[in-house]
């Protein structure tokens, strides 16, 4: 009896993750979509007489060194973060998924070569590889996203290879092959379609990581540069004024925390719903 009760409680707890995580992600999505309507001021409008104001009813998050409304900048920053997630994740998937499909489907030396290459990229700590790439390409939003995508490729490649290995044994794949469908057809029509759900869960799980990496790179001056309201870049600016206006760093950081937390909770919850064997307890 006690065991049954615990299971129900655990399931509810897991659903709670999806609900809270999904809620936070929805909040960020809405904030990004309707940024011009939500933000009380223009995020780029300067008013030097208003600089360094602490939070008030006119400026709920205060103002920065140029007198810009911090709330409006944080709200518009959601757009940049969503762009980072969308571009970073889809770029990594666009390369990693086909590589994993090919490796898993054909096997043999093709598989070994691809996995060996992915393992070398995987040996790098993500941020270090990103710094190396950005140091060569130069700091910008696009280059930063390329760098983040490169170090995320192995994650999708490995997952997609393992999924392909198990999916290609299925009867419907055998049947498709017997019907004379081409390799490409089988790979994309039958295998990829069935691998999509776990891949999308992985994408949700890595979305938070993308935001963390992007904000770290921008904080280091290797990503998005001011005046674009990117949260990491805003924290970096706030660092200069930490002694007189700590709120400049406080609010963008909270925005990062909420976004990453939302995606992590949602990803965790979705993974558990999809594959109960991976459940923590």
């Amino acid at each position: 009896m006690r065991r049954a009760k615990t299971t129900v409680k655990t399931v509810l707890l897991r659903r709670k993750n999806v609900v809270i995580g999904g809620g936070l992600v929805a909040l960020i999505l809405l904030m990004g979509l309707f940024a011009p309507q939500v933000a009380p001021h223009d995020p780029l409008e300067q008013n030097l007489r208003n600089a360094y104001q602490t939070p008030s009813s006119e400026y709920p998050f205060g103002t920065d060194q140029f007198g810009r409304c911090l709330l409006s900048r944080v709200v518009h920053g959601a757009r940049i973060s969503l762009l980072e997630i969308g571009m970073g994740v889809s770029l990594a998937m666009a390369i990693g998924v086909p590589l994993g499909l090919i490796a898993g489907y054909f096997g043999g030396s093709i598989d070994r070569t691809i996995m060996w290459l992915l393992d070398i990229v995987y040996a790098f700590p993500g941020i270090i590889l990103a710094i190396l790439i950005v140091s060569v390409l130069g700091p910008s939003l696009t280059n930063m996203l390329i760098a983040i995508a490169v170090f995320s490729i192995p994650v999708y490649g490995r997952l997609c290879r393992n999924l392909t290995l198990s999916l290609k044994q299925r009867e419907y794949v055998e049947a498709a092959r017997a019907l004379g469908l081409s390799n490409l057809g089988i790979m994309f029509k039958h295998i990829l379609r069935n691998a999509l759900a776990p891949l999308l869960v992985q994408a949700t799980l890595t979305a938070g990581g993308v935001v963390l990496s992007a904000s770290t790179l921008s904080f280091l001056g290797l990503g998005v540069v001011p005046p674009t309201p990117e949260w990491g870049a805003m924290i970096s600016t706030g660092r200069t004024f930490l002694t007189i206006a700590p709120h400049l760093s406080l609010f963008p950081g909270l925005a990062i925390l909420i976004t990453v937390l939302g995606f992590n909770l949602l990803g965790d919850g979705l993974r558990d719903l999809l594959d109960p064997r991976l459940r923590n307890n």
């Binding site: 938070g208 706030g238 930490l242 990453v260």
Partner: peptide
């Protein structure tokens, strides 16, 4: 979920 550099600051 928290960036370490932000906790640091």
């Amino acid at each position: 979920s928290t960036p370490s550099f932000w906790i640091a600051l």
